[in-house]
Computed example of a mutant assay.
Amino acid sequence: DDQVLGTRQMQIALRRLRKFARQGAAEELDVDGTIRETAKQGILDVQLVPERRNRIKVLMLFDVGGSMDAYIAECEKLFSAAKSEFKTLEYFYFHNCLYDHVWKDNHRRSSTRMNTWDLFHTYGRDYRVIVVGDASMAPYELKSAGGSVEYMNEESGEVWLRRLRQHFDKTAWLNPEMEGYWHYTQTISWIKEIFENHMFPMTLKGLEDMTRYLSR
Rank of each mutant, 00 (worst) to 15 (best):
A13V: 04
A13W: 02
L14Y: 05
R18E: 15
E27M: 08
D30T: 08
K40Q: 13
L44Q: 11
V46S: 05
Q47P: 02
R53N: 08
N54Y: 08
R55E: 14
L59V: 08
L59C: 05
V64N: 06
D69H: 10
D69S: 11
I72F: 06
C75G: 03
E76K: 13
F79R: 14
S80L: 13
A81D: 07
S84L: 15
S84H: 12
E85F: 08
F86V: 10
L89N: 06
E90A: 10
H95C: 03
L98W: 00
D100M: 07
H107V: 10
R109A: 15
S111E: 14
N115I: 08
N115E: 09
H121W: 09
Y123V: 10
G124P: 00
D126E: 13
V129F: 03
V129A: 07
I130Y: 02
Y140M: 14
L142E: 02
K143M: 12
Y151F: 11
G157H: 01
R162G: 09
F168D: 03
A172G: 06
W173M: 05
L174G: 02
L174T: 02
N175F: 01
P176F: 01
M178I: 11
E179V: 05
Y184H: 06
I188W: 01
W190I: 12
E193S: 09
H198Q: 14
K205M: 04
L207C: 03
E208F: 01
E208A: 07
E208N: 11
T211C: 13
L214C: 07
S215K: 11
